[in-house]
Structure formats: structure tokens, C-alpha cells
């Protein structure tokens, strides 16, 4: 196991290196000179040269990369071009709201997906199974921003049950916090619901065909006990994998949902920064998104082996 963990970490190194190169090049692929964005009206050659020197843009590209990487390793993501705030601080301020929304969406997707996926597997071909199949195809076909807009139209505009958008901190008013999070969490969680349900269903079908299930039934265990105690625990192992990846991909889903619901998280910060041409912030967020995804991938592999000891690490 230790050898496996070490090998996985070693394999991650070249990938992490390439990811940092990619994110670094992102800012250099950008047409236009960052100095011109910074300077605005005053575009004298001296001023441009001064900015180039300040940002290190006068050095060769690989030197710039090494300097940049050194800073990243020390947790310094640079400063925002527009607000001059450290990028790390800007992201840290917005991250809790994104994580809160992501976890709420995950919670929503699991409380719908696991029971419905289980019922669909146990009663194959039933109406519940057909509804589950419908959700699993529809959920991945309907854009989450569109789901968000339909939810706003039905539940906010027409029935006035929930606010259109915005954010209230839990510490300030727990009830309002919940009211504000319901719609974005459903919009963000629907694609996950579809995927998790599909996984639960197919994995449950597979598990129910196993000998030990038949043995449990033969020994007189009730159907409910067999499904919920014996089968579900094992059926959920593949679901863990996909849920882990969904946690790693929280920022990805948040980009659109946060824009629809004016949720003050990292996703919205990314979109705002793109329009403000604030590339250091965009760079920081892309780097964070890629690394959280990579770490989630690694953890999922490790947890998977722990949950299912039959998986070998050779």
C-alpha cells in the first residue's frame, strides 16, 4: 500500500509539472500586453518598459516560469491586475461560499440518487425505474444554467417561495442562508444526481446477482435487510469514486451556477476576472481547480482500495 501511494505520488509529479506549464502559458498565450491593461491611458514606452521590468516580462520565458513556480510553491499566486489584492486572498475570501454550495449540491444529489437508484435496481422495469432512467438521461442533457433559470421562474418569480439569488452567511441568519442555497444547490446538483443514480442502479444490479445475496436470502433475511444492509454497502463503492471526482470538480460546476444565482463564490470571481482581463486571478483559479481535481483523483483511488480490499495495488 505504501509503495502504491508513493508510486501514485511520483506519477503525479510530471502531470503536475505539465499542468503548471499549461497554466503559466495561459497568460502568455493571451493576445495583448498585460502592461497595456495595467497602464490604461499612459502608454509611453518608458512606462511599458517599467511595468515589464516589474512583472519580470523582460526576462526569457523559462526564467519567468521558474520565478513564477517558485512563488506558487510559497503560496504566492501574485496580485490581481485590477484590484491589486493578493490573488490567494481573493480566492480564499470566495472559496467558503463555493464549497458550501458544492456540498449542498452534493447532498441534494445523493439524497435523491441513492434511494431512487436503489429502487430502480430492485424493481427493474417498474415506473420508478423508468422515472430514474428519465432523470439520468435528462439530467445530463439539460444545461445546469437552464435548470437554474427554470427554477427561478417557477419557484421564485411565480410562487415566490425562494429568493432569485444572492447569498446570506449562515452565521448571520441560518434560515435565510438555507432559503438562498436551495435553488442553486438543486441546479448545480442535478447533473450529479443523474450520474450518481446511474452508478447506484447499475452497481446495485450487479451486487444483487452475487452469491452472498442469495445466501443471505436463503438464510431467511428479509428483502429489506438484504438490500439495505448486505447489498447497498457494496453497491456504493463505485459511487464513492464518482462522488470524489464531483467534490474535486466543485469549482467547475460553480462557474455557471454562481453566475445565474449571483452567488459570491470562486466561479463567479473567475467569470468576472475573465471580463476584467484580470489574468492573474483567472490563472490562480484555474490552477486551484486543476489541483483540487488531481488531488481528488488520487484520494479516490486510495479510498477505493481501502473500501474494497480485493483491489490489488500491483
Amino acid at each position: 500500500m505504501t509503495t502504491y501511494v508513493l508510486r501514485r505520488l511520483l506519477l503525479m509529479l510530471p502531470v503536475a509539472f505539465l499542468v503548471t506549464v499549461g497554466v503559466f502559458l495561459l497568460i502568455h498565450l493571451t493576445p495583448g500586453d498585460p502592461a497595456l491593461i495595467l497602464l490604461g491611458e499612459d502608454r509611453s514606452p518608458q512606462a511599458i518598459a517599467q511595468i515589464h521590468q516589474q512583472l519580470g516580462l523582460d526576462k526569457p520565458l523559462y526564467v519567468q516560469y521558474v520565478i513564477w513556480l517558485g512563488r506558487i510553491a510559497h503560496g504566492d499566486l501574485g496580485r490581481s491586475i485590477t484590484t491589486h489584492q493578493p490573488v490567494g486572498t481573493a480566492i480564499a475570501e470566495r472559496l467558503p461560499a463555493t464549497v458550501e454550495l458544492g456540498l449542498a449540491a452534493l447532498f441534494w444529489s445523493l439524497i435523491v440518487a441513492i434511494p431512487l437508484g436503489t429502487i430502480a435496481a430492485v424493481r427493474r422495469g417498474s415506473i420508478a425505474d423508468q422515472i430514474a432512467t428519465g432523470i439520468s438521461v435528462g439530467g445530463v442533457s439539460i444545461p445546469n444554467f437552464f435548470i437554474g433559470i427554470v427554477l427561478i421562474f417557477v419557484l421564485s418569480v411565480t410562487w415566490r417561495l425562494f429568493p432569485f439569488g444572492g447569498y446570506v452567511a449562515f452565521t448571520k441568519d441560518p434560515f435565510e442562508n438555507l432559503r438562498h442555497i436551495v435553488l442553486p444547490a438543486i441546479a448545480l446538483g442535478t447533473a450529479g444526481t443523474a450520474i450518481n443514480m446511474r452508478f447506484t442502479r447499475s452497481s446495485m444490479i450487479e451486487v444483487l446477482n452475487n452469491d452472498y445475496i442469495r445466501t443471505a436470502m436463503a438464510k431467511g433475511a428479509s428483502w429489506r435487510r438484504v438490500v439495505f444492509i448486505h447489498a447497498l454497502k457494496n453497491a456504493l463503492i463505485p459511487v464513492v469514486t464518482i462522488v470524489g471526482l464531483q467534490i474535486g470538480g466543485i469549482i467547475e460546476g460553480a462557474v455557471v451556477t454562481e453566475t445565474v444565482f449571483t452567488w459570491p463564490g470562486v466561479g463567479r470571481l473567475a467569470v468576472e476576472s475573465i471580463f476584467n482581463r484580470d489574468y492573474t486571478v483567472v490563472q490562480g483559479i484555474v490552477l486551484l481547480a486543476a489541483f483540487s481535481y488531481m488531488v481528488a483523483n488520487l484520494l479516490v483511488d486510495l479510498v477505493y482500495g481501502w473500501l474494497d480490499p480485493r483491489i490489488s495495488y500491483s
Binding site: 510530471p14 493571451t30 469549482i251 475573465i274 481535481y293 483523483n297
Partner: peptide, 21 residues
């Protein structure tokens, strides 16, 4: 390894980053 690096980015984030650039 190049393919792994592309896969390390969540799909939409990669697309947004490329379009931003």
C-alpha cells in the same frame, strides 16, 4: 503524460481558460 495533464483540468474549466486566453 500530456494527455494526463489535459485530464487534470475539469473539462469546462479548461475550455473557459483557453477561451479566456
Amino acid at each position: 503524460r500530456f494527455v494526463d495533464a489535459l485530464l487534470a483540468f475539469p473539462g469546462l474549466i479548461l475550455a473557459i481558460a483557453i477561451v479566456a486566453a
